[in-house]
Amino acid sequence: MEKLMETVVAILGGSKVTLELFLVTLVMALPLGLLVSLARVSGMKLLSRLMELYIWIMRGTPLMLQLLFVYFALPMIGIRLSDITAALLAFTLNYAAYFAEIFRAGIQSIERGQYEAAKTLGMTYTQTMRRIIIPQMIRRVLPPISNETINLVKDTSLIYILAMNDLLRVARTIVQRDFDMTPFFIAAVFYLAMTFVLTWIFKRLEAHYGKYDA
């Protein structure tokens, strides 16, 4: 029993890294993704193409490779980052690309009539996006954003490659030390608990934004 508590405490310690990576990535990647999606739909050709290239690279290569690149390859051109900074950079850039495509799909799903109504009322493009299009878009993209966010919880385990002691790596270390599988089950419970909380939050958000539906 005491040993079990010890394991739980150790894994709890590891989940701090996991949570930090998760939360900071989310807080940075969501706004960045929104900016990228707005650039994509802006009608500015060069900007839009650049964002398309960025999204292609981020979605077209493994997140693991991006992590390794940021941590091991950037130092060759003189950019040396700590392990957590490297992880945050790679995760944010990667997830912003996915979020951007979800936001873009959401923006493009809003009916033309909404833009036309705003235009005939004298609203500028910025006002239209900020007040009319984006609030409606958020409501529509909540389910896919929820999906990606849950993916992010689990993707955090990739940072073991940088030898960072996240939730899963701590569990694996104990398993390898004690030849006992219990830490894996405890780790699974931790992940499930996090996704449970996330699912609940997104459900609340959907209810909040859905109040104007019939």
Binding site: E111, Q114, A117, T120, G122, Y209, Y212
Partner: peptide, 21 residues
């Protein structure tokens, strides 16, 4: 152009009210 267009109100076949307001 926005000022001149603003002299006119428009009513659409599909109403186009803002559903979130």
């Amino acid at each position: 152009s926005r000022r001149l267009v603003g002299c006119m109100g428009m009513v659409f076949q599909q109403f186009n009210l803002f559903p979130h307001m």
